[in-house]
Design a protein around this nucleic acid. Sequence first.
DNA 1: ACCTGAACACCGTTCAAGT
DNA 2: ACCTGAACACCGTTCAAGT
Lengths: 235, 235
Amino acid sequence: MTSKQFSSVWVREPRQSKAQGHGLSRDQIVRAALELLDAEGLEALSMRKLGAKLGAGATSLYWHVANKDELLELAYDEIWGDMPVPDPDTVGWKDTASAFAHGMRQAILRHPWAASLIGRMPAIGPNSLRAGDRLCRALVLAGFRGMDQDYAGSAITAYVIGTTIPEVAWRSMSQAAGYDTESMREIVKMAAADYPDLVARTEHLAGLDERAVRAVNFDFGLLCVLDGLERRLGS
Amino acid sequence: MTSKQFSSVWVREPRQSKAQGHGLSRDQIVRAALELLDAEGLEALSMRKLGAKLGAGATSLYWHVANKDELLELAYDEIWGDMPVPDPDTVGWKDTASAFAHGMRQAILRHPWAASLIGRMPAIGPNSLRAGDRLCRALVLAGFRGMDQDYAGSAITAYVIGTTIPEVAWRSMSQAAGYDTESMREIVKMAAADYPDLVARTEHLAGLDERAVRAVNFDFGLLCVLDGLERRLGS
DNA sequence: ACCTGAACACCGTTCAAGT
DNA sequence: ACCTGAACACCGTTCAAGT
């Protein structure tokens, strides 16, 4: 029953607050939530724990936010706050799109818990919209109009979240299990034993630094997407 | 503490079972879980509810599966079971990759709860591996070798999950809220009011059938990815 | 305007005990 | 070999009551 409903904090008026200064504030709660999320992950965030961290009862939070999902929505949008997107007019659409993609990936890598939220809340907070608007304008500048503009934008974001979600998942699994990359690969090899091609595919990764491989992998695919987009412009 | 750990059902020996015939079996549990998931979604699946559906206590399940995550891993892999992937030798790599992508998308759309599991469990079950192997072979046939082969494969799967996760999310949100597509778009427009380009972007969707738009969107992006991959082959 | 504590209706999982 | 029930340690959320 949680985590659904399209009601979004962003379209509801916030509770009016007095001048205050003492006691809890929504910003303060969101900041504390972010700290907890960054430090311990999504599953570690409970209203009780967050309340305790703020020296208050769990139920005190409910005056400032409607429920946990709304709190997560607020925290989630913060993630996109420090995504540097250059001005498309000066660097061109491809570089802008590329910077957007890299910034988005970094934002998720820096806040891995956000990966699990991607399918769960609408990304219509102010930070998210600002970044989206920049990408949007870059695509107009490229020459995409009408539907194609939507399609192009969603191809880029889809690629980013599609690469980054598994990347984050892999990292957090290996970390939680206390395994290094090499032993993780061993396990995958065991599971895939029946498929020589798949085994070979993990075997040639032996000795390679995972993060480096992921980074190159990301650029490779991004190049494909951008090349493909460019080609659609011609026709 | 749940949902992490790299321990995967697929690399652990299952409990040996007798001839039986009466009582619970692992297959039976997984089948019931799938029914519940398809009917009511991920959040509605609890061990107690599943036990009840099978006429047993919740704790009875723990003899057949180690924990809830393991059960989800088993159910999750089933999703990829009916993904038709043609033989790359007869239809060529691009058509194979395209069929793979469409099959993957359909599998997720048919079992929306699986979308939330994508970043949470390793996809190394038998069905998942079989499909992966086919894609892998198609890419070899295309001419991708070594790292490029990995990169190409992950570009395709990344694109699919990156498009499909938000699609499923959008659907389930509108369904849960009881809104139709048009009123959902109104809400997004309100949230994005400060960004004329973004408002325009949702405005020209007015009156269009969402599913149809999504389908075209998917093909557009997929074409970009495949075109981009093809171009990398040349160099 | 803001915070509290008690209470409700849930969870997943363990474990001793049964058959 | 398999199932049970009681129990533990949690959840998110509501709500009457306080200040």
